[in-house]
């Protein structure tokens, strides 16, 4: 895990030849603003899952920010989850973002893979405290849970793009604080605006043939309207319902589910191809014997950069054949 955390680019290499690796049944991304209670919600979700399914292994990947100045980091998400530390079926790994923007860290995918390998049934990925545009977790998790807390802005914030678009579930945490009801209301209103848009879109598409209920809604989310929960995670209030909600999503949306995992797979293959290409390209360019005078040709203007690129592409493809 340390290796893959440190060398994320070598993930495909490490898993080369592994065909039937086990994957986590459910990967839940937990995201939200700093201090909204992501860790606490996660902690209580672990407790709930462990209670419901005592035999199942739970993984947690908790990402906290690295200092952009020194590269150091204090990873404190674990503090909220320490009561699970001695539970052999709960594996928690803290990661530093290491300068990666987007709310995760480059090594997170590999760690996730290993968590599947060690038999985790559910994996929670907790992002760094995010603002508005750190939505990378949506590309890694099956379901994304956005944790909100009162006091983080008015209804206009809800209209803004980014975070609000990726949530499959929303949790209004700290429901015991004043303002939670207002936040809940604003959130519902904002999300129903989304639904209105979906409605319009559906009507336009089907040109009046049937209502939105007849077919799947067309939306960025692809999975219908997100659920909204109220919770006071510190007191374990509302956690029960959240877990029910998560599991219901798993049950009810297996098609979109597969679609999402397929999308992720395509991404992964693309990354893997690019990585391999990059490696071979480095090799080719490193062999300055041949590339050297070609480079000279480009420098002297006898050959365009595009021509050179084309030639290199062909050469890297050939080196693949040679390998076989």
């Amino acid at each position: 895990m340390t290796f893959i955390g440190d060398h994320p680019q070598r993930l495909p290499e490490l898993f080369e030849g592994m065909t039937h690796w086990p994957q986590a049944r459910l990967v839940v991304g937990v995201t939200g603003a700093p201090g909204s209670g992501k860790s606490t919600v996660t902690d209580h979700m672990i407790a709930e899952y462990r209670q419901r399914f005592p035999q199942r292994r739970i993984g947690v990947i908790a990402v906290d920010p690295s200092s952009p100045f020194t590269g150091g980091a204090v990873l404190g998400d674990r503090v909220r989850m320490m009561r699970h530390a001695t539970d052999p079926l709960v594996f928690i790994r803290s990661l530093a973002s290491r300068g990666h923007l987007g709310g995760l860290t480059l090594g997170a995918k590999g760690v996730l893979r290993i968590m599947g390998l060690i038999g985790c049934d559910v994996v929670f990925i907790e992002t760094v405290g995010v603002g508005q545009s750190e939505v990378e977790v949506a590309g890694v998790a099956d379901l994304v849970m956005v944790v909100l807390a009162p006091g983080q802005g008015d209804s206009v914030q809800m209209l803004k793009a980014g975070l609000m678009e990726i949530g499959d579930l929303f949790v209004v945490n700290k429901a015991d604080l004043p303002g939670a009801q207002t936040l809940h209301r604003n959130l519902l209103q904002s999300l129903s605006l989304d639904q209105g848009a979906e409605h319009d879109c559906q009507h336009a598409k089907s040109a009046g043939a049937g209502t939105a209920e007849d077919g799947p809604l067309i939306s960025l989310r692809k999975k219908g309207l997100p659920d909204v929960f109220m919770a006071a995670a510190n007191d374990h209030v509302g956690i029960d319902e959240i877990v029910d909600g998560l599991e219901a999503k798993v049950e009810g949306h297996s098609d979109q589910w597969r679609q999402r995992r397929e999308d992720m797979l395509v991404d992964e293959i693309r990354e893997s191809v690019l990585e391999e290409a990059r490696r071979r390209l480095d090799q080719t360019l490193g062999n300055n014997g041949r590339a050297g005078d070609r480079l000279g040709q480009v420098l002297r203007g006898e050959m365009s950069v595009a021509q050179m690129a084309q030639e290199l592409l062909e050469r890297t493809a050939e080196s693949k054949r040679n390998l076989k």
Binding site: G71, G72, R78
Partner: peptide, 16 residues
């Protein structure tokens, strides 16, 4: 330690 560039995992008080 953070300022010195280490990644520090802090576990909080009263741990066994």
């Amino acid at each position: 330690l953070r300022d010195a560039g280490f990644e520090v995992i802090y576990t909080g008080i009263r741990r066994t």
